[in-house]
Design a protein around this nucleic acid. Structure first.
Lengths: 197, 197
DNA sequence: AACGATACGGAATTGACGTTCCGTTTGTCA
DNA sequence: TGACAAACGGAACGTCAATTCCGTATCGTT
C-alpha cells in the first residue's frame, strides 16, 4: 500500500475524474459490462487517455463504481437503523438494497454472477455485515422476523429481488410485488417450517 | 417461413449436429456468453466450420439452447400437473424451473437480463403460459396459493430464485432456503396484505 | 465403382474493443 | 510571466473472438 502522501490532484484533473466517474456510472448502469471505454470518455467529454490516467483498466473503473454502490447500500442500512420499528428498518433496508441493485446493470451483473469474489474492500464488507446483522438481530429479537434466517441469506435475497426487478414488465413497479411476497415469507408468523439447513 | 420439406440430413451431419448441441450445452452452461465458438467446436470434436454449418451465428446457437431449456421448464410444468396436491404441483414446478435456470449460466444470463425480448418461439411461450397458468389456478382454487398472485409474477419469481441460486455459497443448497422463504410468502395463509398493483 | 451433392476442417479474414504512446495543452508556483 | 511538471486528446496498436472461404473428404445413389 502506498503510505506516501501524494500531492493533491491538479484542479482540472480533479474535475475530470469526477466527470469520468459520473459518465461511467451512467454508461455502466445502462449497458453493463458492454459499455465501452470510448463511450465513457465521450460522455465525460474527455479523451480516452484521460479515462486511463484516472483508472488504469476498465476493471478498475468498474470496481470503483461497485464500491460506490456498496457504500450506498451500507448507507441505506445505517439509515434503516434509525427506524423506530425494527421490522420496518429491516425490510426497508432490504428494499433499498434491491432497488440499488436493480437500477445498475453493471452492479447487478457483478452481484448476480458467481464468477470470483465480489470486488468489495474488506473493511467495507465487514461494515455491511455489521450493519445488516444488527438490523436482522433487532427484528428477530422483536419477534417479527423469522428466527431461522441467517446473515448469509441476506445477499441472496437482496440479489434475488434486485435481479428480478431488472426484468422490465409492462409495469415497472412489478418488482414490488415480488418483494412483498418475499417479505411476507420472512415474517416470523409466516414460517410454515424451519428453513432447510 | 420455409414450407419446403427439406431432404433429411446426411447421417454424419445429423450426428455432428447432435455433438455440437451437446458440446454447446456444456460450454454455455459453464461459461455463459463468454464461451467461444472455437471451444464448442473443440469439445464437439469438429471444426468451427461445421458448427457454423448447423448454426449460422453464435446467437442462433444460444437461442437453440435456450429453447431447449424452456422446453424442459414446460415439461416440468406438465409433470407437475400430475401431482395429486395442487400446492405441491405449483411449488414443485417453481422449484424445478428455478433449478433449471440456476444450472445454466447462459440461460440465466438471458432470462436475467432485460435486454430485448426473450428468445422463445411464440407457440412455446403460449404453452408455458397455459401450463403454468393452470398450475396457478388450481392452487388458488384450492385456497392454498394467495389469490392476488398473477401469471406475470411467475417469471420474475422463478428467475429471482434461480439467479440467487447461482451465487455459490459455501453451501450449494443455500438457494433452497431462499426458495422456502419465498414459497412461505406465496401461501394464502401467509399474505399480510394484498400485493401492490 | 463412380459421380454428384453434402458436409467437413481449419487457416485466413474482419471487426470490435481495450490499452498504449507521444506530441500538445494547461495549471501551478516562483 | 516564464518554466516545468502534470494532465490531456486521440490516433495507432495489439489482441481476441466471430465469421467466412474454399480445397478436401464423405455419403448416398445409380
Amino acid at each position: 500500500m502506498d503510505t506516501l502522501a501524494r500531492r493533491p490532484l491538479r484542479a482540472d484533473a480533479r474535475r475530470n475524474r469526477e466527470r469520468v466517474l459520473k459518465a461511467a456510472q451512467v454508461a455502466f448502469a445502462e449497458r453493463g459490462h458492454d459499455a465501452q471505454m470510448d463511450d465513457v470518455a465521450r460522455r465525460a467529454g474527455v479523451g480516452v487517455g484521460t479515462v486511463y490516467r484516472h483508472f488504469p483498466t476498465k476493471e478498475a473503473l468498474v470496481e470503483a463504481l461497485a464500491t460506490d454502490r456498496f457504500e450506498r447500500i451500507l448507507a441505506a442500512g445505517r439509515e434503516a437503523l434509525e427506524a423506530p420499528d425494527p421490522w420496518d428498518g429491516f425490510t426497508g433496508a432490504l428494499m433499498a438494497g434491491a432497488e440499488l441493485t436493480a437500477s445498475d446493470r453493471s452492479f447487478s451483473e457483478i452481484v448476480g454472477e458467481l464468477t470470483g469474489p465480489m470486488p468489495v474492500p474488506e473493511p467495507l464488507l465487514k461494515e455491511l455485515y455489521d450493519v445488516y446483522g444488527e438490523l436482522m438481530r433487532r427484528a428477530q429479537t422483536a419477534g417479527q422476523l423469522r428466527s431461522d434466517l441467517v446473515l448469509d441469506d441476506i445477499p441472496m435475497i437482496m440479489c434475488g429481488i434486485g435481479i428480478g426487478a431488472r426484468k422490465t414488465h409492462e409495469c415497472p413497479q412489478a418488482w414490488r410485488r415480488h418483494a412483498a411476497i418475499l417479505i411476507d415469507g420472512l415474517r416470523a408468523s409466516g414460517a410454515s417450517a424451519p428453513l432447510p439447513s
